[in-house]
Simulated scan of single mutants.
Amino acid sequence: MYFDFYSVNDWISTYPTSVKTVYKLYTTRDYDINHRIIESNKYILLYTFDGDGLVQVDGQVFQSKSNTLIFANASKSLAYKCASDTWNFWLFEFKTEPFLLKTNYLYNIPFTMEFSNLCDHTLLSLKEGQQQLASAYFHLFYSILAHKLDNNMKSYDLTVIDKSLEYMKDNIKDFSVQSLSNFLNIPTRTLIYIFNREMGTSPLRYFQGVRMELGKEYLESTTMNISEISQELGYYNSGHFSATFKQYTSVNPVQYRREFNLRNMG
């Protein structure tokens, strides 16, 4: 087994991406590592350029083969194990905002000379005490990866939006962005980024729109009073519902129902 690595003690708080640890490992069958201390607010990028390995993240196992990478965000357990005669890979511990790709997911992407050079520069800069420069090199590497995987991301984003809409409708009374994030098993900041990119608004604002549209349906098609509609939508104060509805439609619920009925008379 051969490895080259460097690690620093602290994160850079003033830079959008901060890299703290870099490993370049050439492992053999006896390589088997279990992390005992999990730092749940950091990410792991593991890029295999030769051989096979197994990566376990919170009980989920991924088979990492040549030209695959995984972005891991563990909260309970993280382990690596060589699954062939050799397993050679780069490993980075980093933080970034926003996170552009799906976590705990295996991507297929060829390892190019450009990628190799950026990884080498990141490790060398960290060794030379230039953490900000190392983070800049890594951010470039990470951004190029995100760009090349954009088609996969687009499909993934649309799936996230579709599942989010279903979840919002099913949990209209007790919705929260955190509960949606937990349901989708993705970080909250990633969820917010996807909504802003695809829908032009945050998940919470989008949910408010869903709730107001449902309120309009109740006003148009039922005889429920405002208090009953408020409760159905998760508002325990009809005044709060009325004020929010007016912000959304420019009229209060009573006016909206009256105008709707007048338009549809006869």
Rank of each mutant, 00 (worst) to 15 (best):
F3E: 15
S7K: 12
S7T: 15
S7M: 15
W11I: 10
S18K: 06
K20D: 02
T21Y: 10
Y26D: 12
R36Q: 14
I38C: 02
N41D: 15
L46W: 08
D52T: 13
G53K: 07
L54G: 02
V55S: 02
Q56D: 12
V57P: 00
G59P: 01
V61S: 04
V61R: 09
L69F: 05
A72G: 09
A74Y: 06
K76C: 04
A79K: 12
A83L: 08
S84A: 14
S84Q: 08
T86A: 11
F89L: 09
F89D: 04
T96R: 09
L100N: 06
T103P: 02
N104P: 01
Y107Q: 04
Y107A: 05
N108M: 10
N108I: 11
F115D: 05
H121Y: 15
H121M: 14
L124E: 14
K127T: 04
Q130R: 09
Q131V: 05
A136R: 07
Y137G: 00
S143H: 04
S143T: 11
I144R: 06
L145D: 00
H147I: 13
H147E: 15
K148T: 06
L149Q: 01
D150I: 15
D150P: 01
D150W: 05
S155C: 12
D157Q: 14
T159P: 00
V160E: 00
K163M: 12
N171K: 03
I172G: 01
I172V: 12
D174G: 04
F175Y: 13
V177F: 00
N182M: 07
P187D: 01
F195L: 04
N196V: 08
N196W: 09
R197E: 13
E198Y: 05
L204P: 03
Y206W: 09
Y206G: 08
Q208L: 14
L214Q: 10
G215K: 11
K216I: 01
Y218E: 00
S221H: 13
S221L: 13
N225S: 01
N225F: 02
I226V: 04
E228A: 06
S230V: 00
S230F: 02
E232V: 01
E232H: 12
N237Q: 09
F241A: 00
S250D: 08
R257G: 00
N261F: 15
N264L: 10
M265K: 10
